[in-house]
Simulated assay, not measured.
Amino acid sequence: MARPNPKGPQRKVDIYCARCRTQLFRYRKGGKGALVKCFIERIVEDYTDTPCVCPGCGAEFARQALIRGVPAYKMIGGKVIVK
């Protein structure tokens, strides 16, 4: 399988915790579907202290994984909001 384009798309979205509405990431998202995974190389700004844990409420919102050989966060359904 092909690796994701590291430059990636130009559209940036803000990702928030669904529980406490704390901003987690600013991310370059491609496509118009739901946010299922975040490639770490496409994260523009990271507001978390610990990977995959919300700094506001301490909830786990994702799991670390390798997707197509590239490190990524797989989002847990219903834990994040994209604006």
Rank of each mutant, 00 (worst) to 15 (best):
G58A: 10
Q23F: 07
G58F: 13
R3K: 10
V44C: 14
V13I: 08
E45H: 15
A72C: 13
F25W: 13
K74T: 08
A65D: 09
C52W: 12
Q23W: 01
V80M: 05
P51F: 02
Y73F: 06
I81M: 14
A72M: 03
A62N: 09
V44Q: 14
P4I: 00
P4M: 01
D49P: 04
G8Q: 03
G33P: 02
Y73R: 15
D49E: 14
K37T: 13
D46N: 15
C54I: 08
V80E: 12
V36C: 12
F61P: 04
R19C: 08
T48F: 04
A72G: 10
V36Q: 12
I81L: 15
K79T: 10
G58P: 05
P71K: 08
R11D: 10
R26P: 10
A34N: 10
V80Y: 15
G8W: 09
A2F: 01
T22L: 07
Y16Q: 10
G8L: 08
G30D: 02
E45D: 15
Y16D: 07
G31R: 07
D49A: 06
V70Q: 06
C54H: 06
I81H: 11
D49R: 14
I43L: 05
K32Y: 13
I67T: 13
G69D: 04
A62T: 00
K29R: 15
Q64P: 04
K83A: 04
R26W: 01
F61T: 06
G77Q: 12
Y47G: 09
T50V: 13
P71Y: 02
P4V: 00
E41P: 07
V53M: 09
C20P: 09
I43K: 07
K74N: 11
F25P: 00
F39H: 00
R3I: 00
P71D: 06
C54W: 10
F61H: 11
C54D: 05
E41I: 05
R11H: 11
E45A: 13
T48P: 09
Y27S: 09
G56A: 11
R42Q: 15
G31K: 03
A2R: 04
I81P: 01
R3D: 03
